[in-house]
């Protein structure tokens, strides 16, 4: 057995199956290693120490990143980032363009595996698993951690097929029609497309396409949904719809959203991580904490500059 299988989580009792990640101290990301696991403790190097605000007592963690670095060939895009992603909350990654937000997000479901030059170091704890371990099958990771992309990218197939595809290839044997309807309802798209599910997904408007992509992600019944600037290609009305949707989805899913829109981060997210790249274009974490504190009481002067609009 070379790859450690992940247990398939059903939608209803998924919450009970998800194992808990302790969050005893801020900064100490991961509890003591279990047998067979090698997760190093975080060494807080003063030159790269980020400001970390206290997380509320009641949050459970969905994901914990420990010293995650990403290289594209010889170029280091992200430098030793450690932060925690609370469960059933919206966590926003903000920062100027090119600071490595997308790169970091794509580590969380091993999408960087698809880029031949990319190399990821560090650990990402998900339940009891280390997502970055070579023992773990990236396909299983992506089944449990879904993704919505910056540019809506529905398959050039019918709306129904778009939603059903993920479930079908993952061996879903239940009532497919109901699953499709559920997913479309949850993505707030059902009322608009219920009468022409056979229509091509590409025939929808941009905002509808993006909601279709969200439905497609939901239909696989993931635990975490990653969104990379999901509204940046949309008009303000469609953007608001997506934001509302994010808030609703956060009741059942952990959401990590990349955005470079400050107002959007303020509106939708519970927690915010601010990343910044220096001269060498390597992204580092500057500040992480509850959104309200980051926005009203930023500790690092660079965070304050960014939030008040002094960067681009």
């Amino acid at each position: 057995m070379s790859q450690q299988p992940l247990a398939p989580a059903a939608l209803d009792d998924a919450a009970s199956q998800r194992s808990q990640v302790a969050s005893d101290a801020v900064g100490a990301v991961i509890e003591a290693p279990r047998p067979g696991q090698t997760i190093e403790a975080v060494h807080l190097d003063p030159t790269r120490s980020a400001v970390r605000h206290e997380l509320p007592e009641d949050v459970e963690l969905a994901l914990a990143l420990n010293n995650v670095s990403v290289f594209y060939g010889a170029f280091q895009a992200v430098d030793r980032i450690s932060l925690q992603i609370p469960r059933n909350r919206v966590t926003a990654l903000i920062g100027p363009s090119g600071c490595g937000k997308s790169t970091l997000l794509r580590c969380l479901n091993r999408m960087n595996d698809l880029i031949p030059s990319a190399r990821v170091e560090g650990h990402i704890r998900f339940g009891e698993l280390d997502l970055l371990s070579p023992k773990i099958d990236a396909v299983d990771v992506r089944r449990r951690i879904g993704m919505v992309f910056q540019k809506p990218n529905p398959f050039p197939k019918s709306i129904y097929e778009n939603v059903a595809f993920g479930a079908r290839i993952n061996g879903y044997s239940g009532d497919m029609d109901r699953l499709v309807e559920d997913a479309l309802r949850r993505a707030a798209l059902w009322d608009e497309v219920r009468d022409d599910l056979g229509k091509s997904g590409l025939a929808l408007s941009g905002g509808q396409q993006q909601r279709l992509c969200i439905a497609r992600a939901i239909a696989v019944q993931p635990e975490v949904i990653l969104m990379d600037e999901p509204a940046s290609a949309l008009d303000p009305v469609a953007t608001l719809k997506i934001e509302d949707l994010m808030r609703e989805l956060a009741e059942d899913y952990t959401i990590v959203v990349v955005t470079h829109n400050m107002q959007q981060a303020g509106r939708v997210s519970d927690f915010t991580a601010f990343l910044l790249a220096g001269e060498e274009r390597t992204g580092r974490l500057v500040e992480f904490g509850p959104t309200t504190e980051i926005f009203t009481n930023p500790t690092d002067p660079r965070t304050e500059d960014y939030i008040t609009g002094r960067y681009g």
Binding site: M111, L114, V139, R143, M147, N153, F155, F165, I169, V220
Partner: peptide, 21 residues
């Protein structure tokens, strides 16, 4: 388009499933 491959991978498709479908 790479975006289509990514979309398929992101719902947990294997390489062969992405190619085939």
């Amino acid at each position: 388009p790479p975006s289509m491959r990514e979309a398929a991978y992101a719902v947990g498709a294997t390489r062969w499933q992405v190619i085939r479908h």
